[in-house]
Amino acid sequence: FREMRSIYVGTKISFIRKLFYIVDYVFAFIIQGASISDYFAYGFYKLRYNGRKEYITYRRYHTIQNKCNKISDRCLCREKNKFNTLFKDFLGRDWIDINNASEIQFVSFCHKHSVIFIKEINGYRGIGTRKIETKKLNVKDLYDELVSDVNSHYIAEEQITQIRELADFHPWSINTIRIVTVYDTKNNEVHIMNARLRMGNKKNSVDNFHFDGIGANINIETGIIDTIGYDVHNNVYLTHPITGKQIIGFQIPYWEECKSFVHRAAKHIPTVRYIGWDVVIQDGGRFLLIEGNDNADHDFQQLHNCGLWRQYQSIIKEF
């Protein structure tokens, strides 16, 4: 009942009430396919059938993924070296596949860039990402360390910049736009299903929602943030807790151009039609992709806004 206690802080819950939650959750799992996280995150304990059917649950999320994304091609998103190769025209940054590079090539890469990020090719949610200041260490030793790790495969990328308006939220991280698309290949139409701003917090170097980051919904039509900020612990924010920059009402710069950018990216990989794109906006309206997630979290898309299952159903029913 850890999730339950986080909702009813300081409230004593009777045995009968606890029993209700257990039984009610079992029904939500059987009927809607809700995980325990879904049940509390979306407030299913307050909703009945008509309300619950609006939400993408764990089971419905897998329905979307299985209908949209060819299993054999999901690696094109999940393995960073393959993604960077396929989307080389969308990256906007220098990178190197360390395990397939010579020591001389890696040393040359490090001499070219004073700050690099080391990533495992199968890493997710920012786990395992290392920020390296190349002038402060022996890069040959670093190369030997990375290539001798038989359990991992690494890439290195140069540090990137972001537009000042977004950096002001949390300048210690790159604050990305997560845009989720579904590509209807039959009608050659890309549907933007959800858009959210992701902000770092606590001076972390990544903005990932599941690594203490903050999210907020972006109105797809206007590009204006129309919800408060929130984190995975159900804390809410009118302003960023460190910088004080107001979240709700913020206009994402170059929004129409940003949508066009992800439309082009989505059409670049027609066998993986459901993707959450992490986009960086740079000065002058330039864009680059950090990554594309074929398994974009369904909770991040719906928290503090509304259920999206009906919208997804209307598009994927023909797939």
Rank of each mutant, 00 (worst) to 15 (best):
K88E: 09
N99K: 09
A101T: 12
H111D: 14
A156K: 04
I155H: 04
F106E: 03
E158Y: 07
S108G: 13
I116V: 14
E145R: 07
I160F: 06
W172E: 14
L91Q: 10
N99P: 02
R125A: 15
G92A: 13
G123I: 02
Y124G: 14
I174E: 05
D149A: 10
L146F: 02
K140Y: 07
N175W: 06
R125F: 01
F117D: 03
V139Y: 01
R130F: 02
S102H: 10
S114R: 15
N99C: 14
N99A: 05
I160N: 05
Q162I: 06
I163T: 08
D149V: 07
L137M: 14
E145T: 12
F90L: 08
Q105Y: 01
Y154E: 01
S102A: 09
F117I: 00
L142C: 10
I116Y: 05
N99F: 02
H170L: 10
I155P: 00
V139D: 01
S152F: 09
Y143K: 08
D144P: 00
F169H: 06
S102N: 03
N100M: 04
H153P: 00
T161S: 14
W172M: 08
H111I: 10
Q162M: 12
S148Y: 01
Y154Q: 00
D97G: 03
L166M: 09
N138G: 03
N100H: 15
Y154V: 03
D141Q: 15
I160K: 14
N138E: 11
V139M: 12
K135P: 11
K140Q: 15
E157T: 07
K88G: 01
D94W: 08
Q105I: 05
L91K: 11
T161D: 09
H113Y: 12
V107T: 14
G123K: 01
V147R: 07
N122D: 08
P171W: 05
R125C: 15
D97Q: 07
L142W: 00
K112G: 02
H153A: 01
Q162N: 12
H113C: 08
G123Q: 02
E133Q: 15
N122E: 06
D149C: 06
E103K: 12
S152T: 10
H113S: 13
G123C: 11
G92H: 10
R125D: 08
H170R: 00
G92Y: 07
E120V: 04
D141R: 14
D89T: 12
I174Q: 04
R164S: 15
E133D: 13
K119N: 06
G126N: 07
R130W: 03
Y154T: 01
Y154G: 01
S108M: 11
V147E: 05
K135G: 06
F109S: 13
T176M: 09
E165C: 02
L91Y: 10
K131R: 15
Q159H: 09
R93N: 10
